[in-house]
Design a protein around this nucleic acid. Structure first.
Length: 565
RNA sequence: GGCCCCAUCGUCUAGCCAGGUCCAGGACACCAGGUUUUCAUCCUGGUAACGCGGGUUCAAAUCCCGCUGGGGUCACCA
């Protein structure tokens, strides 16, 4: 495909601001972005807020920030300042990018269609239509609008428009429409599958079909990459484009993403998980302030009832469970890196079909790679299941690959938002020091705290794991305990508490006592952490510092001596 | 239910369009072993799939048909 200057490739992502950015939407946006970049084109962001009831400004803001966090930069669209860089703008002067601000454009197109007799007003009320729909269902036939309004003479219709409430319907041409889809091939839909759909609602706002057609044309969109749930809409848009004399963009409908059990990934999954945990825990009354017992009981027994997101999070915390991640914000909170999320998302349905040097398939790649290699030909046709375990593995690898400095930056930034106590306990430069111990032991940024959990406990509050104490200190004639005492003595005059010199110190001590490293390492580890498991000994002691280490050893000696009697 | 889309290891997939090089390759997970003072990392090896039935062909994971299964869609939501 060649691109001459006058006709750049333009893709778009057009979310409706009715909630957070769903992970499926993020993948659509990512691949639209990648396609545009690969073809030296532009990626456009448009907010489809024609549903006045459900749209909100805070949703828009959230979606913009989620995209920015992922690093999916839009060239045209609403402006956003994010950590010093500006996203969006209107350099081509084809805005505004909020559909609610583009009503004049839609009306112009609608009026033109009416004048050309390609669209017409219809006067049935929603209730009347609902009635007819019900009848059709009972008769087990597909419902289609019966074109009753077309029986009214045109003159009369035009007259009634002035006085009555009405919708505008598009006269769907009576011919089969073939969509040339870059992913699925040719898809032909017969005319009896369509009726004269509404293009302007009673409230004067256009419907999605009309708005999307007008906007894509006016904004110069050349390629539409979207989820397969839109496949059936495409013939409508193609017909509308023809009627309005617009060019037809190239389409690509990508397969949808599902939960491992095959169900749709939806916000309801969070309620489902919380309900199950509540039942398992035998909760009979609301444990959350601001949620009444009655509401809680109703929510619990009604499968479709959903709780406010913040309430749900409080409940999850109370139950000590993790809610399934559904929105980009969820993954962010859970401590995923955007690079890992993008990588996994891109691979879900797209394959670079390239080998690594060792002959394995290329799976790990970054945004630059995507931007220079993405092609629709690599898209799969089949639906896929979202495997959090594989994503976790991608994330763990991405974290491990970070430099200590970058890891500290990400970790501290994450903690600042999601775990302020962690962020205030350890500065970013502290975290650089912690990085070597934490990186290979964390699958997510949220895991980090657990790795160094021993550092969060006061010296005199350490709880000693009985088994570990026995195995490391008491077993074999208290050899471990004696070694620990001896090492404690040497440590009292030792001041260089860097990880490497502590390692050296322990090593030379073991040599002088003619024992293996483990003989002194494990007693020490148990003494300072209470358990037999921690990062490397040098790192562990370095994190605690000399005072704390000595305190803890003393306390352990006391504890173990009592145990040994 | 009508229409439309889809179908390879448990999961994501390569191979399919241009049939033979595929007793089907990779990744995640899992199992076993190794490295490591513990854990984690890391290394080595292993288990594991062409949904079913018909064709076409010397030859089918690859082409055709049917079945089954999964999904989408049938709004004055997008």
């Amino acid at each position: 495909m060649t691109n001459s200057a006058p006709n750049p490739t333009i893709t778009r992502f057009a979310p409706s601001p009715t909630g957070h950015l769903h992970i499926g939407g993020a993948r659509t946006a990512l691949l639209c972005w990648a396609f545009a970049k690969k073809n030296n084109g532009r990626f456009l962001l448009r907010i489809e807020d024609t549903d006045q009831q459900r749209s909100s400004e805070s949703s828009t803001r959230g979606i913009l920030e989620d995209l920015a966090w992922l690093g999916i930069q839009w060239d045209d669209g609403p402006e956003l300042d994010y950590h010093g860089s500006t996203f969006g703008g209107d350099s081509r002067s084809v805005g505004p990018y909020y559909q609610a601000q583009r009503i004049d454009h839609y009306n112009e197109a609608i009026n033109r269609l009416i004048e050309e007799d390609k669209a017409y007003p219809a006067f049935e009320t929603p209730e009347e239509l609902e009635e007819k729909r019900k009848e059709a269902i009972e008769a087990k036939v597909g419902y289609k609008y019966d074109r009753a309004a077309l029986d009214i003479p045109r003159e009369q219709r035009m007259e009634r428009m002035k006085a009555e409430d009405y919708v505008v319907r598009f006269k769907m041409p009576d011919e089969a429409i073939t969509v040339h889809d870059e992913i699925l091939g040719e898809v032909t839909i017969k005319p009896d599958e369509f009726d004269d759909f509404i293009i302007r609602k009673r409230d004067g706002f256009p419907t999605y079909h009309l708005a999307v057609t007008v906007d894509d044309a006016m904004m110069g969109v050349t390629h539409v990459l979207r989820g397969q749930e839109h496949l059936i809409n495409t013939p409508r848009h193609v017909a509308l484009q023809s009627a309005l004399g617009y060019p037809h963009p190239v389409y690509g409908h990508m397969p949808l993403i599902f939960n491992p059990d095959g169900s749709k990934m939806s916000k309801r999954d969070k309620d489902k998980a919380a309900k199950k945990a509540s039942k398992d825990a035998g909760l009979s009354s609301s444990p959350i302030e601001g949620l009444s017992d009655a509401d809680f009981a109703e929510w619990l027994k009604n499968k479709t009832r959903q709780l406010e997101s913040s309430t749900l999070m409080q409940l999850a915390e109370h139950l000590q469970i993790n809610l399934p991640e559904i929105d980009v914000e969820d993954f962010r909170r859970a401590g995923y890196l955007p690079s890992a999320l993008n990588n996994y998302l891109a691979l879900l349905g797209w394959n670079p079909k390239t080998k690594n040097e060792d002959g394995t398939d290329l799976e790990r790649f970054d945004m630059d790679y995507l931007a220079s290699h993405f092609a629709m030909s690599g898209m799969g046709k089949g639906q896929s299941k979202f495997d959090r375990v594989k994503l976790l593995s991608f994330n763990a690898d991405a974290i491990a690959a970070l430099s200590d400095e970058d890891f500290a930056k990400h970790w501290h930034q994450w903690a600042t938002t999601y775990d302020p106590s962690l962020a205030s306990r350890f500065s970013e430069s502290d975290m650089v020091e912690l990085a070597p111990a934490v990186k290979t032991r964390s699958k997510t940024l949220a895991d980090g705290k657990g790795v160094i959990g021993f550092a969060f406990i006061d010296d005199d509050a350490i709880e000693f794991d009985g088994k570990a104490v026995h195995k490391a200190l008491i077993k074999g004639d208290h050899k471990g305990l004696e070694l620990l005492k001896a090492f404690r003595y040497e440590l009292s005059t030792f001041d260089d508490f860097s990880a490497s010199s502590i390692e050296a110190k322990v090593s030379s001590f073991a040599e002088s006592k003619e024992v293996g490293m483990g003989k002194i390492a494990q007693p020490l580890r148990v003494a300072v952490t209470g358990s037999g498991v921690s990062p490397s000994l040098g790192q562990t002691l370095a994190i605690l510092g000399k005072d704390s280490v000595l305190n803890r050893i003393d306390r352990c000696i006391e504890h173990a001596s009592a145990e040994a009697l």
